[in-house]
Write a protein that binds this DNA or RNA. Structure first.
Lengths: 334, 334
DNA sequence: CATCAAACCGTGACCGCTCGCATGGCGTGG
DNA sequence: CCACGCCATGCGAGCGGTCACGGTTTGATG
């Protein structure tokens, strides 16, 4: 008997022969309503395809019912491409938020001033914010996080910063990548990635720690940008000097892919001449030639964690930054 | 004087010394309000960081202020990975909708029955729906499109179907890819892709048309799935028979990348032994080895078009499906 | 100086929902 | 048999806007 969509609670109430408030309570599972009544009303609602008006409900409850998911694109102003790793977080986030009855309000921002995040949290359009990556905006984020609690960011937990973060242990990941290369007998390692991005800085720190521990010095640092063309160019330029490199740790798979291509174009073979390990294990990492050895982060778990922490914050429950252990996925590039 | 967020129209009205309705009208640009008054109120609103409560506004106006962007994942039930091409559409869509003051409500659905789209459009949570891809759900989409007009789908315009679509000319694209291979002297062509997806079917049609015109017969069809592993396996299996293939048109870049890897693993060189052309020109297409020759679709323009058409529909203006010309991006794989 | 439009602005109802409080019905002890 | 308490339900205000309608100025005009 799927009839025309009963437009409001009053319609349903009239049909059921009870008051509006009874219907409201029945549908929201309020125990004050007798079981029989509730079940009768629920059945009626189902038959008439009735769904509560969220806008009205949220207005009354003084909330928006939406969570902002924002992608800051601070480090890549020339192109609008977003990192495939971050894009892959969005799907699981959408699912997790939907499970909790919240809408996901997506926005991308290219930070032009220090106020971009203030505008979002003060806009009154969301009950909380999930930041996908710190980009090079960690200070702005920190300032806002100090006054706005329902904010969770994917990225690095940096000492002295209070922002609530979820991420993998980037130091461990960087170390893992370097150790893997060292274990293969590689001796001249380079790290490709812009250390202005906190996650990359942490990976670089892990990389250096591994080298230091092995007594291999500092290693080389190439602060490659995230855009593919820029990093390709930078890598080509570096390679032109024929530095004695036999192992590369890339701060992301995207950079690793640029490296793969640059190495190939420079006549170097991977992994025989130089081994490459990436970071993230994005979907295409297994499809490169050779398939990319990389440090995997658990996207699905990370998304779930971010949402959990955010709702802890919304509920006033104390919440602590979460750090997940990354692990090495060995393929052919190293 | 950025003070505490003036919480409502009445607060601002009190501050401005006018009535609530005047503030409402001033802020919505109603010409009934004197210019001076309006500007004064606008300044006040700005100073106090006041932003209109969208939930209340939308409730009163009887709309939701949100557009649903939905990713149907019909053809890839085992994995949740979404096609990078579709993911890349989301960013520009978010921007275009934000420009129009609408929120973007993202959801992914794995169609389990024929009602998934009905639930979305009848849910009353969105004013319109943008479907990212037809997947294998074209009939469900068509049924809903017949009764629900604010619906635009990215995909193929199929003869006899009334749904409003935006997409590139897939037949032309498929033909273009095949012609490119034929022009290089390739004679034994194969098409990799599942023709249950309407866009892929159209690309395949173009592929066959090109072969027919060149008198090269039908070509080979491998209905590869979209998941990378499945398509890789299928391609390896095909290659194991050593068919006389010297050119491959892949229905998407993701499939092309699987093909590249499968060919390499089978000891075949690209492009000398077999040339490969992909479809979409996703970000990583330029990073494969060899870089992928592919058929490019203009994502940004497509996103803008989808939003334009949707708002035409919302306004009651007649709108027609749009078809954009694809073009060949020649790199090294063919 | 009275009159009247035009131009502005204020009043109040209402969008659909939630929840504090009032109310009705019924079982039970005195 | 009545007073009392408790449980299930109804009443109505109000969340923050919008807009139809009516009221008040203002300036031009007879």
């Amino acid at each position: 008997m799927k009839s025309t969509n009963a437009s409001s609670l009053v319609t349903l109430a009239r049909i059921a022969g009870v008051s509006v408030s009874t219907v409201s309570r029945a549908l929201s599972g309020n125990p004050m309503i007798a079981r029989a009544t509730r079940e009768r009303i629920e059945a009626l609602a189902r038959d008439h395809g009735f769904q509560i008006n969220r806008a009205a409900r949220n207005l009354r409850l003084g909330r928006t019912g939406a969570i902002g998911v924002v992608l800051p694109l601070g480090h890549e102003t020339q192109q609008h491409l977003s990192d495939p790793f971050f894009m892959s977080l969005i799907g699981p986030l959408a699912d997790a938020l939907a499970d909790r009855g919240y809408d996901l309000l997506l926005s991308r921002v290219i930070p032009t001033d220090g106020q971009w995040l203030d505008r979002i949290v003060d806009g009154g359009r969301v009950d909380g914010v999930l930041l996908i990556g710190q980009s090079d905006q960690i200070d702005t984020i920190e300032r806002v996080a100090a006054r706005y609690t329902p904010l969770v960011v994917w990225g690095a937990a940096v000492d002295g910063y209070a922002q609530l973060t979820v991420g993998s242990d980037n130091v461990a990941g960087g170390r893992m990548a370097a150790d893997h290369l060292l274990a293969q007998g590689r001796r001249h390692l380079a790290f490709f990635g812009n250390p202005d991005v906190p996650e990359f800085a942490a990976r670089h720190a892990g990389f250096r720690a591994a080298l230091a521990q092995a007594g291999m010095g500092e290693g080389l640092l190439l602060p490659a940008h995230l855009t593919t063309q820029a990093s390709y160019d930078a890598i080509r330029a570096l390679l032109a000097d024929h530095p004695p490199i036999d192992g590369i740790v890339a701060a992301s798979d995207v950079i690793a892919m640029s490296a793969l291509r640059a190495l190939g174009d420079a006549g170097l073979r991977v992994p025989s001449d130089v081994a490459v390990v990436g970071y993230d294990d994005v979907m295409v990492a297994s499809q490169t030639t050779p398939p990319l050895t990389t440090i995997r982060q658990d996207v699905a778990r990370g998304a779930a964690l971010m949402v959990d922490l955010l709702f802890d914050r919304l509920a006033g429950t104390p919440a602590a930054s979460a750090c997940m252990a990354p692990h090495l996925v060995q393929r052919a590039s190293a």
